[in-house]
């Protein structure tokens, strides 16, 4: 061995502190409720949340569905909207990046719709689609399509101009340059969009369900508030956070697999 491996030792304190901090967080949360500093009508303790979690696994009352039905409805809505956003947004962004006609036609409409937060569409969509799944999918689609278009557009625009000039010199047509050069070089940006769009979709989903739904995790939170049951609210929040985090990890893993060869 030409070199010696250097081991950098993390101090014991640094390894203990994160665990201690988590424990202290939950301990303090449990304590302020057990000691009655914050009344149970305002916040549920961790132990109450765990007990209602176990109860909700099999008990549909008081909000009409067991926990996994809520979670499944939310995931279904989020993924339908997300996939539609990818299917329309990514090709649109790629085309806008390379063909000036596509950009000239699509850019103004996109710029009009972009500054409106998807949540502002909720009243209009309730009018159009009612409170069923299609309205929520529409709102989630609006939330997801913006990052898809922007990232794939920027990805194509970032293609190395030297490569394009070289392809031209060798007699490639516009379409060949687009498919053989611009799309592969835009892929890392497009995959960046997958993550951003998913985060947007998930946030938008909760908003859509808060206002109009009869199942779903956002609806669970709303019902918890209407019934003044903080344990239900906190359970809903934790489930939303947890599901979002799990989906994020899965997407990250898929991205690493697909991009293994072309990461820059």
């Amino acid at each position: 061995m030409a070199y010696e491996e250097v081991k950098i030792k993390t101090p014991l304190l640094l390894r203990v502190l994160p665990v201690a901090s988590i424990l202290a967080f939950f301990g303090a949360w449990q304590l302020i409720i057990s000691l009655g500093i914050i009344p149970t009508t305002m916040l549920a303790s961790p132990s109450q949340v765990i007990s209602i979690f176990i109860e909700k696994l099999s008990e549909p009352n008081p909000d009409g569905a067991v926990l996994w039905v809520h979670a499944w409805t939310s995931i279904q809505e989020a993924f339908t909207g997300y996939l539609l956003a990818l299917l329309i947004g990514i090709p649109l962004g790629l085309l806008m990046g390379w063909f000036s006609v596509a950009e000239g036609l699509a850019r103004p409409i996109f710029e009009i719709i972009r500054p409106i937060p998807p949540i502002a569409w909720i009243p209009l969509t309730i009018f159009w689609f009612g409170i069923g799944i299609s309205g929520k999918v529409f709102i989630i689609w609006l939330g997801g399509i913006v990052p898809c278009v922007i990232n794939s557009f920027a990805g194509v625009r970032m293609t190395n101009p030297t490569l394009i000039q070289m392809a031209r010199t060798y007699g490639a047509t516009d379409w060949q340059i687009f498919t053989k050069l611009c799309i592969p070089s835009a892929l890392p940006m497009v995959f960046g969009a997958l993550q951003i769009a998913l985060a947007y979709c998930w946030t938008t989903l909760v908003a859509a369900e808060l206002l109009a739904a009869d199942t779903g995790l956002g609806y669970l939170i709303t019902m918890g508030r209407r019934l003044a049951m903080p344990d239900l609210v906190v359970l809903g929040m934790i489930m939303v956070g947890l599901t979002g985090a799990v989906i994020g990890v899965v997407i990250d893993w898929v991205e690493k697999r697909l991009l293994a060869g072309i990461r820059r």
């Binding site: 808060l210 939170i221 508030r225």
Partner: peptide, 13 residues
């Protein structure tokens, strides 16, 4: 990971 909008209900409580 919790969307800020999920906090609305608890904020109202």
């Amino acid at each position: 990971p919790m969307p800020p909008i999920a906090w609305i209900s608890i904020a109202i409580l």
